[in-house]
Design a protein around this nucleic acid. Structure first.
Length: 499
RNA sequence: GGGUCGGUAACUCAGUUGGUAGAGUAUCGGCCUUUUAAGCCGAGAGUCGCAGGUUCGAGUCCUGCCCGACCCA
């Protein structure tokens, strides 16, 4: 398709004509004083007679979303950030010259400024009678179809601005997202947590197992990695004496894209000295249930057809118990690597035959058999230590960590543990990870973060820490089926030749 | 990486067993001073994702590639 569609050409030409008549296409002096939403709210109960008795003139700006033309009058709806409101333009009100210009040169999609009194039409709609009308911003491109809006998913993501103009629900999702983030900030600040910012570019990417993005710093002459997690830096702050810290920002993982994964995603991590993972379960219940009340007014939400009850307390179950009770894995299968492997194969669960770490095999079973069934909020506790390299060992059973993951709607939403603060054990676990590198696991970075060990050697107070995936949380609260629906500009391949 | 589905006018979509591409909205011209998916009359608008192939003839069948959605790995 050619560079300029016919409509685009016509519009640019009309715009130039208008400009040559002395009308500015992009003036910046208009100052709206009112907004559609509040006006509709304030005057909801006013009938036409009462509205006419108000002498006030109102002044607002917005984009023309629809238009119904008559010979000497025009109805249209303009949309500002809050809502749409109807405007009535009459030749007798704005004068024949202005009306002629308006009819010929003002298009759907233009942003205009309006001043005038309110009235109610025959059908009862609150409407502004335009006394004054000015062009604020000329639109060269036409809006999508007024009835169906913008449907094409690809176009919605590539031109999110259009999606936001056309689809009210999309605007709502991102308002809710902002509300959630703001709630969390206020919650943690009110609980005495300090908001901090730690490096996004790290010399050794740590705190999780994932493939990092690599970059290069010329002045330092060294490779840096976009962080896969802030964990190791936040713990250094515990060593430094801050007892409650949180960070709410982006992580980057150079892995697949799916309905649950975007290469950059937002994570809340918080650390609390002198607390345990059990304290964090209570805190998590408190956060989610009060967040639900804040957003929806109650503690139940609906996600993709599931009714989900966030009222505390939530179910707790051990990792192995979950495999046995929920995943229906026979207990004896978990006795050895060999039995686990062959059982997995029998049941068509894809596992790496060379996998040496029993915990990783169990995790595969868990992902396949348990996770999808955890619809109601569930804390899974007592994770195998060999897949929890930064978590404290349980005192009674050193094969498991004092750790939980929170599942809601069949997805992992949060991950938390009592922090390992013994530098000797931490070094041993890092070294074990390095050893596994021989098994050719590209996810594990070969370098030990020596400075982190050194920090622990100065003494980190006992603490618990938690990470909550904000994008998935927002999905839950906005009933969004894909992570792309809650990320303003999700990553896509560069576009081919499209209009 | 594999599978399924999709890509046709600016937007939303039709397009039959292969026979020269349609509608609605939007746009342009005309009529209309309480409409709201306004209405009526008229007009223009397409590299059918891209490149090959089969065929007298391809939007339609075949192959490869690009982009997207979903599922699987």
């Amino acid at each position: 398709m050619n560079e300029e569609s016919a409509v685009l050409k016509v519009r640019k030409q009309k715009a130039e004509e208008l400009e040559s008549l002395g009308v500015s296409l992009f003036p910046n002096r208009f100052r709206p004083k009112d907004h559609a939403g509040p006006l509709k709210e304030i005057f909801a109960e006013y009938d036409n007679e009462k509205l006419m008795s108000i002498k006030d003139s109102f002044c607002l700006a917005g984009r023309i979303m629809s238009r119904r033309d008559f010979g000497k009058a025009v109805f249209m709806h303009i949309q500002d950030e809050t809502d749409q409101i109807q405007i009535f333009v009459k030749r007798d009100e704005i004068g024949p010259e202005n009306f002629k210009l308006f009819k010929k040169y003002i298009d759907l999609g233009d942003i205009i400024g309006v001043e005038g009194p309110l009235f109610r039409t025959k059908t009862g709609e609150l409407t502004i009678l335009a006394h004054k009308l000015v062009l604020v911003t000329k639109a060269f491109r036409p809006l999508p179809e007024k009835y169906h809006g913008l449907q094409d998913v690809e176009l919605r993501y590539r031109r999110r601005y259009l999606d936001l103009i056309m689809n009210q629900r999309v605007r709502e999702i991102f308002r809710t997202r902002s509300q959630i983030v703001q709630f969390l900030r206020e919650y943690f600040q009110s609980q005495g947590f300090l908001e901090v910012e730690t490096p996004m570019m790290q010399p050794i990417p740590g705190g999780a197992t994932a493939r990092p993005f690599k970059t290069y710093h010329h002045a330092l002459e060294r490779e840096l990695y976009l962080r896969i997690a802030p964990e190791l830096y936040l713990k250094r702050l515990l060593v430094g004496g801050f007892e409650r810290v949180f960070e709410l920002n982006r992580n980057f993982r150079n892995e697949g894209i799916s309905v649950q994964h975007n290469p950059e995603f937002t994570m809340l991590e918080f650390y609390e000295a002198y607390a345990t993972y059990e304290d964090l379960m209570v805190r998590t219940e408190e956060i989610f249930s009060s967040l639900a009340r804040e957003i929806t007014g109650h503690t139940c939400i609906t996600y993709q057809g599931h009714k989900i009850d966030l009222t505390p307390p939530w179910k707790r179950i051990g990792f192995k118990e979950a495999l046995i009770q929920i995943g229906k894995v026979p207990p004896e299968v978990l006795e050895s690597r060999e039995k686990t492997l062959s059982w997995a194969k029998e049941h068509n669960i894809k596992v790496d035959e060379k996998e040496k770490i029993l915990g990783k095999l169990w995790a595969k079973l868990f992902d396949a058999l348990v996770e999808p069934q955890l619809i109601q909020p569930t804390f899974v506790v007592a994770f195998p230590v060999d897949i929890s390299p930064l978590a404290r060992r349980n005192e009674e059973d050193p094969s498991v960590a004092d750790r939980f993951e929170l599942f809601i709607a069949g997805r992992e939403i949060a991950n938390a543990f009592s922090e390992l603060n013994d530098p000797r054990d931490q070094r041993a676990r890092f070294e074990e990870q390095i050893r596994r590198r021989l098994a050719d696991d590209p996810e594990i970075h070969p370098e030990i973060d020596e400075d982190f060990i050194r920090a622990l050697e100065y003494g980190m107070p006992p603490a618990a820490g938690e990470g909550i995936g904000i994008d998935r949380l927002v999905m839950l609260f906005t009933d969004a089926p894909s992570i792309r629906e809650v990320i303003l500009f999700p990553h896509l391949r560069p576009e081919g030749q499209r209009g």
